[in-house]
Amino acid sequence: MDLKVNDYTTDDGLTVINVEGEIDVYTAPKLREKLIDLVNKGKFHLLVDMEKVEFLDSTGLGVLVGGLKRVRAHDGSLELVCTQERILKIFRITGLTKVFGIHDTIDEAREKRKSQK
């Protein structure tokens, strides 16, 4: 199954990355390339929408952690939108719920970002 990765930037400067499909050792490089490309283009505030992600393994987690590391080097942020229990469980097992901001919706993430400005 292909991994679909699309992005758009909101008027408040947040780049939303929609990810659809399975993120594993085969498909994760595509997401990694997208995150690196966005950072190279100066997009340092990223929100990864994982509501259509059907599978995520540690390779995918590693890509997200790598993306977080890159944006933090520019005082940026990388947060997630995810309500799927099967995906959230992996973040809990690895302790990454303490590393990533995880929101229920894109709007919630945007509102929280506005309130922190």
Binding site: S58, L61, G62, V63, G66, I93, T94, G95, V99
Partner: peptide
Amino acid sequence: GLALGDGPDSLGLAV
């Protein structure tokens, strides 16, 4: 360590 790595193998075993 996690925050500094791009895909540590230890993540997989932890999962």
